[in-house]
Nucleic acid binder design. Structure first.
Length: 496
RNA sequence: GGCCCCAUCGUCUAAUGGUCAGGACAUCACUCUUUCAAGGUGAAGAUACGGGUUCAAUUCCCGUUGGGGCUACCA
């Protein structure tokens, strides 16, 4: 499919009508390392990754750290680590824009030479002032091109004052249209575009300039990125045309919004990938959930493996409208993945999570033997690893906290009666030669039979007494997990 | 304010110029059950509004409304 981007410039000169490169798919993500990695970036990365995988293409990571004030290396590492956790890996990179400054400088000079760009000595302060003034009058502000035709003398004067110029792109008259793979044809008139700055006065290029140079030099064939970049795309196409470069295909992804329908931002602290990992979400579930936010396979399917995703994914099926992040559906999906895991997978996932959280289990319960008995029972009724850990707590420590509601319901109505039953049960357990869930259940059934009461009247208080909780795995599994000694101990220290 | 994007159940979404507008999460009810989950069964729940085009519009066009984004020497 040919890329139909074209620009009519003032002389009616068609600068580009280019063919899609035939050399194969090369995609990239280009995050700015300025903070926690949020789910929007993760999903963009995922879509690029899946697209590359399904086309046998190349996936490039480029760190856009041209904002020296806010960029940090820690953040760059966190991005790589976070995406790695999701199983998203790169074929090339990371490239750092901060290490390519001479490349941008060279290209900026080229535009200066060809008259596509000019030096601007206006101070940011002055520009901000004028912008405010225009805003006060509720009129659109555009750069007035004051520095477009500076005489040599004026220029010398500014230089003598020590003012370092920025470089602006000279936006031609006309309009630009491009065909977005998701949105179709989009047009913008050049009069709505400012003479934007391509190189700051400190010599560092701005996003719109660096991204074009890099995408071209790195031979990026398809740019899949968030819709917020649509307006930038016009500026970028103008630059491609000024250089006479081939224009890549663009696909602008819908946004992921928070529950408040606002764009995900630092406000949504819990939306960072690290946060989800800490809460005990599984990488596979995250991937599955994220891919469905803005894309669907076209059949009534929700749980889709990575392998299938690679096969099924296509840009054509990406949606146009923004999606709201539904935490409850993620929780459900995570539960599905949790329940689908076998014991060894559970063990691995749980250990990874403990490691990530910096939690170490008491030595006697850290054994694979204990955990491989406990985890399946617990994971079956959990949605996150965080919940798994919480449900495991009564088995890890002898310091129980008793659930208030459970005490009210099962102890306080008839304290003496309940205590008597539990102590009777304890006696029978104590006599057991072989203590396991079958024998523990056997003696309980005998007991209630003799007492002529319903099993639940003993079962529920026992659960509270030995685990402190009203919910959990089937009681006799719990007893077996705890072991005879601790069960007897806890039954002799009944809650009040 | 200007420019751009978007609009199907509360949420994620499917579908077609003619369907009983389908599925999933969440909700509710019933069921299963020693609790909690899970499972099973069922219920409720959507084409934003107004105009066109058409025999027929949720689908195509226009407008309105609503939401979102951009409008930096951020990306």
């Amino acid at each position: 499919m040919p890329q139909e981007a074209e620009s009519d410039t003032q002389d009616g000169f068609e600068l580009s009508l280019r063919e899609h490169r035939k050399s194969g798919v090369r995609v990239r993500i280009a995050p700015s390392p300025t903070g926690a990695i949020h789910v929007g970036l993760a999903r963009s990365a995922l879509y690029n990754y899946l697209f590359a995988c399904s086309h046998g293409g190349t996936f490039v990571l480029r760190i856009e750290d041209t904002d020296v004030q806010r960029s940090t290396e820690e953040s760059a590492q966190a991005i790589i680590k976070g995406l790695g956790w999701l199983g998203i890996t790169f074929d090339e990179g990371p490239y750092y824009q901060s290490q390519r400054l001479d490349i941008y400088r060279k290209h900026a000079d080229q535009l200066l030479q060809s008259g596509h760009a000019y030096r601007c000595y206006c101070t940011p302060e002055r520009l901000a002032e004028e912008r405010e003034k225009a805003e006060a009058q509720r009129s659109a502000w555009r750069y007035d091109r004051r520095c477009l035709n500076l005489s040599e003398e004026e220029r010398k004067k500014f230089e003598a004052e020590g003012i370092k110029p920025a470089i602006r792109f000279l936006v031609p008259e006309g309009k630009t249209t491009f065909t977005d793979l998701i949105h179709g044809s989009i047009t913008r008139e050049h009069k709505d575009i400012d003479d934007f700055i391509i190189v700051r006065s400190n010599g560092i290029p701005t996003y719109n300039f660096a991204v074009v140079a890099d995408d071209h030099l790195m031979e990026i064939s398809h740019v899949l990125r968030a819709v917020e970049h649509i307006s930038n795309t016009f500026k970028q196409i103008l630059l491609y045309n000024a250089f006479g470069w081939e224009i890549p295909q663009f696909a602008h992804l819908p946004l992921i919004l928070g529950e408040d329908k606002k764009k995900l931002s630092k406000r949504h602290g819990a939306m960072s990938l690290e946060e989800f990992r800490a809460q005990g979400f599984l990488a596979d579930a995250m991937v599955n959930f994220l891919v469905l936010l803005g894309w669907s396979p076209g059949e009534d399917r929700e749980i889709i493996s990575r392998q299938e995703l690679v096969k099924l994914f296509s840009i054509e099926r990406i949606n146009t409208s923004n999606a709201i992040f539904d935490m409850r559906k993620l929780e459900w999906m995570n539960g599905e993945y949790l329940r689908a895991m076998d014991t060894s997978q559970l063990l691995t996932a749980f250990h990874d999570w403990l490691g990530y959280q910096g939690i170490s289990l008491p030595r006697e319960y850290a054994s694979a033997e204990f955990l491989s008995r406990a985890l399946p029972l617990i994971a079956e009724r959990s949605r996150t690893l965080d919940e798994v850990y919480d449900a495991l707590l009564p088995y890890l420590s002898d310091e129980l906290t008793y659930d208030e509601e459970g005490l009210n319901k099962h102890f306080r109505k008839d304290p003496e009666g309940v205590k008597r039953w539990l102590l009777l049960y304890r006696e029978r357990l104590e006599k057991l030669h072989e203590f396991n869930k079958e024998t523990a259940e056997g003696v309980l059934r005998e007991l209630v039979e003799e007492l002529g009461i319903k099993p639940g009247l003993v079962i529920h208080p026992v659960r509270v007494a030995v685990t402190g909780r009203t919910v959990g795995p089937p009681l006799f599994d719990c007893l077996e997990l705890l072991g005879k000694e601790r069960v007897l101990d806890r039954l002799s220290k009944l809650p009040q």
